[in-house]
């Protein structure tokens, strides 16, 4: 199901994607193609439509018009139930506010993603926590973890089901320099493994880590930069 007239390299393709909330055009006629394995940074002022774009790409919201092809599937045609399936199978999400279930501990928060994907596997979830450097914190609840640790739990949860695409909306926005480094290191290793990354950020330093950087303003792609 990988092919609908795209090259084998393309994971995501947006054609003339718009999203309006009443009169407000959060996105207008965005064209964007992301090849498999690319690390794309998205920058732009507040309100420029970055999160809106992420939600559409992540199958959590529908575009008002235009087509979104994710892994060969046309998202705008799908029913909510199928969007859930795409989201579950293809996308890993990381947010600025470390969204965790407060009454579950770290390993359980990772296992939730496994549970809705297929089968919870505590050993595998622990391995993911180990990978983000939280082996010793598995039984701590979010309130007992620092911000950086919570964000790493989110990353462990995002990568537990081996998604093709990881969407990170300001993943380092609330982190100190040390934790930011840990998170970026993790992104680098995911990137090295071939995972496609789309990272929204306000931080030019973080943006520079990607291979490619686009800037949004008023719902439009206004510039594009290639890094190293």
């Amino acid at each position: 199901m990988n092919q609908t007239g795209l090259t084998g390299e393309t994971l995501l393709e947006l054609r003339q994607v718009s999203k309006s909330y009443g009169d407000l055009h959060a996105l207008s006629q965005v064209d964007l193609t992301v090849p498999t394995g690319q690390w794309l940074s998205i920058v732009g002022p507040s309100g420029s439509g970055k999160t809106t774009l992420m939600n559409i790409v992540g199958a959590m919201d529908k575009a008002t018009s235009g087509t979104v092809l994710l892994d060969g599937v046309e998202l705008s045609q799908l029913r909510p139930k199928d969007l859930t399936t795409i989201r579950r199978d293809t996308v890993g999400l990381i947010f600025q506010k470390f969204h965790l279930i407060p009454h579950l501990n770290a390993v359980e928060n990772v296992m939730v993603a496994q549970y809705y994907h297929s089968m919870p596997d505590e050993a595998e979830a622990l391995a993911a926590l180990t990978r983000v450097g939280l082996a010793g914190r598995a039984s701590h609840r979010p309130a007992q973890l620092s911000g950086g640790e919570q964000q790493r739990v989110c990353i462990a949860r995002a990568l537990i089901n081996y998604p093709k695409l990881i969407l990170a909306d300001e993943p380092t926005g609330n982190l100190d320099a040390a934790n930011e480094l840990i998170v970026l290191d993790l992104f680098h290793s995911l990137h090295a493994e071939g995972t496609t990354l789309i990272v929204v950020t306000h931080d030019p330093e973080v943006a520079r880590q990607g291979q490619r950087e686009i800037a949004l303003d008023h719902g439009k792609v206004v510039s594009e930069v290639r890094h190293g």
């Binding site: 139930k81 999400l93 969204h99 279930i101 993603a113």
Partner: peptide, 16 residues
Amino acid sequence: APQIGLLKAVGASDGA
């Protein structure tokens, strides 16, 4: 609501 939205975001269906 945030928790429930989160569950949906990580792949929980409405039914679940």
